[in-house]
Deep mutational scan, measured.
Amino acid sequence: MATVKFKYKGEEKEVDISKIKKVWRVGKMISFTWDEGGGKTGRGAVSEKDAPKELLQMLEKQ
């Protein structure tokens, strides 16, 4: 499965696309949330040019 790689608060992170729940556009950035388990929700953002095609497809479906 595809993953999204991004930096959050200076830390490199990687999230499996299948865990992503919500995707939206903020200017030229793609923001998203995912389920971290245990009732926690993670947040992240990646530039439109660095976003994997699967993430962009999720954005178009909404």
Results as ranks from 00 to 15, higher is better:
residue 1 M to T: 10
residue 1 M to R: 04
residue 1 M to N: 14
residue 1 M to I: 15
residue 2 A to M: 06
residue 2 A to R: 05
residue 3 T to C: 03
residue 3 T to R: 06
residue 3 T to G: 02
residue 3 T to F: 03
residue 3 T to A: 03
residue 4 V to L: 03
residue 4 V to A: 01
residue 4 V to H: 00
residue 5 K to V: 03
residue 5 K to W: 01
residue 6 F to E: 01
residue 6 F to G: 02
residue 6 F to Y: 06
residue 7 K to R: 11
residue 7 K to M: 14
residue 7 K to H: 11
residue 7 K to N: 12
residue 8 Y to A: 02
residue 9 K to I: 02
residue 9 K to W: 07
residue 9 K to M: 14
residue 10 G to S: 02
residue 10 G to L: 01
residue 10 G to Y: 01
residue 10 G to C: 14
residue 10 G to F: 02
residue 10 G to Q: 02
residue 10 G to T: 02
residue 11 E to D: 04
residue 11 E to K: 08
residue 11 E to H: 05
residue 12 E to K: 03
residue 12 E to N: 05
residue 13 K to P: 00
residue 14 E to G: 01
residue 14 E to W: 04
residue 15 V to N: 00
residue 15 V to F: 01
residue 15 V to K: 01
residue 15 V to T: 03
residue 15 V to S: 01
residue 16 D to E: 10
residue 17 I to K: 02
residue 18 S to F: 14
residue 18 S to W: 07
residue 19 K to Q: 12
residue 19 K to E: 10
residue 19 K to C: 14
residue 19 K to M: 14
residue 19 K to N: 14
residue 19 K to R: 09
residue 20 I to W: 01
residue 20 I to M: 10
residue 20 I to C: 04
residue 21 K to L: 10
residue 21 K to Y: 12
residue 22 K to G: 14
residue 23 V to S: 04
residue 24 W to S: 12
residue 24 W to L: 09
residue 24 W to R: 04
residue 25 R to I: 13
residue 25 R to M: 15
residue 25 R to Y: 11
residue 25 R to G: 12
residue 25 R to A: 09
residue 26 V to S: 13
residue 26 V to A: 10
residue 27 G to K: 09
residue 27 G to M: 10
residue 29 M to E: 13
residue 29 M to K: 09
residue 29 M to A: 13
residue 29 M to C: 15
residue 30 I to C: 04
residue 30 I to N: 00
residue 30 I to S: 00
residue 30 I to F: 12
residue 31 S to C: 12
residue 31 S to W: 06
residue 32 F to I: 07
residue 32 F to C: 06
residue 32 F to S: 01
residue 32 F to V: 05
residue 33 T to E: 13
residue 33 T to K: 15
residue 33 T to R: 12
residue 34 W to D: 00
residue 34 W to Q: 00
residue 35 D to F: 06
residue 35 D to R: 05
residue 36 E to Y: 05
residue 37 G to T: 11
residue 37 G to W: 09
residue 37 G to D: 08
residue 37 G to F: 10
residue 38 G to D: 10
residue 38 G to N: 09
residue 39 G to K: 07
residue 39 G to P: 15
residue 39 G to M: 08
residue 39 G to S: 13
residue 39 G to D: 12
residue 39 G to C: 15
residue 40 K to F: 11
residue 41 T to Y: 09
residue 41 T to V: 12
residue 42 G to P: 12
residue 42 G to W: 13
residue 43 R to F: 13
residue 43 R to E: 10
residue 44 G to Q: 03
residue 44 G to M: 05
residue 45 A to N: 14
residue 45 A to Y: 14
residue 46 V to H: 02
residue 46 V to Q: 03
residue 47 S to M: 07
residue 47 S to V: 07
residue 47 S to F: 10
residue 47 S to L: 08
residue 48 E to N: 09
residue 48 E to Q: 09
residue 48 E to R: 06
residue 48 E to W: 04
residue 49 K to T: 11
residue 49 K to L: 11
residue 50 D to V: 07
residue 51 A to G: 13
residue 51 A to C: 14
residue 51 A to I: 07
residue 51 A to F: 05
residue 51 A to S: 08
residue 51 A to L: 05
residue 52 P to A: 05
residue 52 P to W: 01
residue 53 K to Y: 10
residue 53 K to E: 12
residue 54 E to P: 04
residue 54 E to T: 04
residue 54 E to G: 06
residue 54 E to I: 03
residue 55 L to N: 00
residue 55 L to W: 03
residue 55 L to D: 00
residue 57 Q to T: 06
residue 57 Q to I: 11
residue 58 M to S: 06
residue 58 M to G: 06
residue 58 M to E: 11
residue 58 M to Q: 05
residue 59 L to T: 10
residue 59 L to N: 04
residue 59 L to R: 06
residue 59 L to Q: 08
residue 59 L to C: 13
residue 60 E to G: 13
residue 60 E to Q: 14
residue 60 E to N: 12
residue 61 K to Y: 14
residue 61 K to M: 10
residue 62 Q to L: 12
residue 62 Q to R: 04
